[in-house]
Structures are given as structure tokens and as C-alpha cells.
């Protein structure tokens, strides 16, 4: 019955055929929208609906193309440079995201290490425990922290009733609260890749290093840490990239002067109704993130080669 049996080529063909559905979806609802963002970032703001002057309107045909090209405006980009609000937003987003990434790494590494060194039969449960918070609502977890951190919240109440502090310390509506919120929300993304890298390690390598006279500390820094670097980098990217564009956390836990680009973009879009400005902010944010995102993708697709 070999006649009916599908050859690898035929299977490859049908698999490629099937790929059209998800590919078409992503091209239509992911790639094309970015082309439109780019287009609108070059248009001028106006009053009306939609609140921007269309550029490169294809309805006028080819003859109109030169006229259309003249409507191109760099106004939104030049205002990004001239208004210090935007530059400060970018800078403080990167700083806050970077600090949160380092903090998350410092907390996650010992946890991931302990998970990987725990008895085998504990490990599935520990992994589930590390993933489970990801399944509960992000918004709810941030809300839990507003309950804890507010001036009249649980933390201040507890500290005051024990007598450690006399008056409430202000954490809520500061950069610290935003930092705690980001670290808390993204911690599972840091723990899991590091755990995966550590768990795969051949433990005889450590034993070899110890046999050769290395101290435990030296064995850790010369063997364990370098071998887990892939997980560390993946974890850092998974925390840093989304944290740069974070909007909910600075909005709920930060003060009005916690500038983060995601929030500035939202204000530009919703309050100022400056759609070209918001589009330009998004384009610049993407340009800043394209290197880390590209790097992460290369790491990922290196793992799924056929």
C-alpha cells in the first residue's frame, strides 16, 4: 500500500498549505497594523474623526502620489525631540525596567537554583507553584499590592502596630512601588528559564571542579553560573522588554510623576487625542526594543529548527 503513503515532500506541502491560515492572520492583524502605525506617525494631527490627516491615501491613484508624498510630516518626531517629557519618559522607562530586571534576577536566581537542586519528586510541584501566579489575573495581583502598600495599607499598619515605625512610610505612589509591582508581576518569567537551564546541567561537572580543588564558590562562578547564562539572558529579556512598555503598573502604583513610556503613550492617545504623536512614540519604542526582541527571537528559534 505504499502508493497511498504520503511522502515527506507531500507532507511538507500540506503543512505549508496549513501554515497559510495563521500566517494570513498575523500578516493582517499584526504586520499590517504596524505599517499603519508607521504611516500615521508621519501624518499631522487635526480636529475631527479620525484625528489625523490621512497620508498616502491610495484612492487618488498613482498620479496623486507626489501630492500625497508632500503631506508627509515629521512634526510628531520633532516634537518627541523638542519636548523633554518624551525623552524623560523613555529614559526613566529604561531605567525602571532595567532596575526591575536586576532585582528580579537577584530574587529569582536563588529560587530557581533551589528548585533545580530540590529532590526530583518535588520538582513538578515547584514548577507548578512558580507558574500558577501567571494564571491568576495580572490586574488582581497589582491590586493586591495597592492594598498592601498604601499609606493606610497593610504593610504600614503592620509595621506601626509592631512599633518599627511611628508614622506611615510612603511607598505607594513612588518609584519603589512601581519597581515592586514589576518585579512581582514578572518574577515567574525570570524563574522558569533559569530553572530550565540549571535543571539540565550535568552535576558531575561541579563534582569534577570540587575534586580538582575548587571551592564551592569558585565552582559556582566558574561552572554553574556560566552554564546557566542562556537561561539568565532569556529571563532578563522576558522581564525587560515588556516592562519598558508597562502601562498598568505605573498607572496604578506610581504617582503622576512616574514617567513611563507606555503611560505617556496612553495619555497622548486618550487624553490629548494626538494619534500621530502616540504612533511616533510607539515607533521609537519599537526601534529601541528591536535589538532585544530580535535577540530573543534568535534564541527561541534556535531551539525549534526542524
Amino acid at each position: 500500500m505504499t502508493g497511498e503513503r504520503a511522502s515527506p515532500q507531500a507532507e511538507g506541502r500540506s503543512a505549508r498549505l496549513i501554515s497559510w491560515a495563521p500566517l494570513a492572520w498575523l500578516l493582517l492583524f499584526f504586520a499590517l497594523p504596524f505599517v499603519i502605525v508607521l504611516k500615521i506617525s508621519f501624518s499631522r494631527q487635526r480636529d475631527g474623526q479620525p484625528p489625523y490627516e490621512p497620508v498616502l491615501d491610495p484612492s487618488g491613484g498613482l498620479s496623486n502620489l507626489i501630492d500625497e508624498a508632500r503631506k508627509f510630516s515629521l512634526e510628531s518626531y520633532s516634537s518627541l525631540l523638542s519636548d523633554s517629557l518624551y525623552l524623560e519618559s523613555y529614559l526613566s522607562s529604561i531605567l525602571i525596567a532595567g532596575a526591575a530586571t536586576i532585582l528580579a534576577l537577584l530574587i529569582a536566581y536563588p529560587v530557581a537554583y533551589a528548585m533545580a537542586r530540590a529532590p526530583r519528586r518535588w520538582q513538578p510541584l515547584l514548577v507548578i507553584l512558580a507558574i500558577a501566579p501567571f494564571w491568576t489575573s495580572f490586574l488582581i495581583r497589582i491590586y493586591a499590592w495597592t492594598m498592601i502598600l498604601k499609606d493606610e495599607g497593610l504593610l504600614n499598619h503592620a509595621l506601626m502596630s509592631v512599633g518599627i515605625i511611628a508614622a506611615p512610610i510612603q511607598i505607594y505612589a513612588t518609584h519603589w512601588a512601581v519597581l515592586i509591582g514589576i518585579v512581582y508581576s514578572y518574577l515567574p518569567f525570570m524563574i522558569l528559564p533559569i530553572y530550565n537551564a540549571l535543571e539540565k546541567q550535568d552535576r558531575t561537572l561541579i563534582e569534577a571542579a570540587l575534586d580538582l580543588g575548587a571551592t564551592r564558590l569558585r565552582a559556582f562562578f566558574c561552572v554553574t553560573l556560566p552554564l546557566s547564562l542562556r537561561g539568565v539572558i532569556a529571563g532578563c529579556l522576558l522581564v525587560f522588554i515588556p516592562a519598558v512598555g508597562e502601562f498598568v503598573i505605573p498607572d496604578l502604583l506610581g504617582s503622576s510623576d512616574t514617567l513611563m513610556i507606555g503611560r505617556t503613550l496612553w495619555d497622548e492617545f486618550a487624553s490629548a487625542r494626538n494619534w500621530p504623536g502616540a504612533a511616533a512614540l510607539a515607533v521609537v519604542m519599537l526601534v529601541l526594543l528591536v535589538i532585544p526582541i530580535g535577540y530573543y527571537q534568535r534564541m527561541q528559534s534556535a531551539g525549534d529548527r526542524p
Partner: peptide, 13 residues
């Protein structure tokens, strides 16, 4: 991995 605000804005536009 892309920040949600970017994806959201792109889809809206």
C-alpha cells in the same frame, strides 16, 4: 513579547 500598549495601539489604528 512586545509591549501590549504597542500591539493595542497598532490594532486600534
Amino acid at each position: 513579547i512586545m509591549p501590549e500598549v504597542i500591539v493595542g495601539l497598532a490594532l486600534l489604528l
